[in-house]
Design a binder for these strands. Structure first.
Lengths: 135, 135
DNA sequence: CTGGACCTTCCCACAATGGGAAGGTCAACA
DNA sequence: TGTTGACCTTCCCATTGTGGGAAGGTCCAG
């Protein structure tokens, strides 16, 4: 199977497959006589795994770890779970930060008339940066 | 005022101040005879504005636009508000996406025993990627 | 045999930030 | 006065993940 076929079937672009191989995330696949990479069904499944894992926001490093655990029949689910928990924690932290930003922005947008005149609470707030407005 | 002083007072690192200048986000400041950049109080305020704007997640391009509006006494608050609204929309979209990821991860983590054994719903789910599990 | 659709590698770009090298300058203290 | 340490300057490199595109080889259908 050519790279573009496996790319389409897995949802990982050919560009990225080559890149993942080059950084060692994926073990290099066999080449045909003409130098073309040659993939099988297992590769489709593996790349789908990568794709899904990326979709859940895991870094490529984490994807590598998860791939290794996936392949390791003697893994402990504890390790997998720990990895997922840590990532979940990161996500939740980032969500919390973004929600704080979102709240602030909503207030500011709300306070701004949005008309032809220059007076603008948004700019005022940005200019008055250092002090934290009392929530 | 030297760059490290203005950096400390504004919360923008000296490295970044130089960088912002190099990409044209900031107009180049005056130099002393020895070639050192020289800053005044206005620059502190301006960099604080940049810092705060960055903290709210605006891109450098948007920071530039906001800086220009801030300086333009004939601006319309409409323009400022539009910019802020667009950014707010982006943030909210991203939050929604991350919350979906977070929900999925929470379910998976919950389903995984996290013991010494290899059975792991997390890996199972990642492997079964393509289909969307019914929520 | 030719053209279009593949494939290969290699370099460049992005966003935003930081690290660090190599070299010049300033100020304080012995 | 000389040295030392803390500044400053520019320049290049790394990060993270993805894509664009060039230059060149290959394959297949008409």
């Amino acid at each position: 199977m050519n790279i573009s076929t496996v790319a389409e079937r897995s949802g990982v672009s050919a560009k990225m497959i080559r890149h993942y191989e080059s950084i060692g995330l994926l073990t290099a696949t066999d080449r045909r006589d003409n130098g073309y990479r040659d993939y099988g069904e297992n590769d489709v499944a593996m790349l789908q795994f990568v794709r899904r894992t990326r979709d859940l926001g895991f870094s490529l490093e984490e994807v590598g770890a998860l791939l290794a655990l996936w392949r390791d029949r003697r893994r402990s689910s504890r390790e997998v779970r720990r990895l997922a928990e840590r990532h979940l924690g990161d996500i939740e932290t980032r969500i919390a930060e973004m929600r704080a930003v979102s709240r602030t922005l909503r207030k500011l947008v709300h306070a701004c008339k949005g008309d032809d005149r220059p007076d603008c609470p948004i700019l005022d707030d940005l200019a008055a940066a250092p002090r934290r407005p009392p929530s």
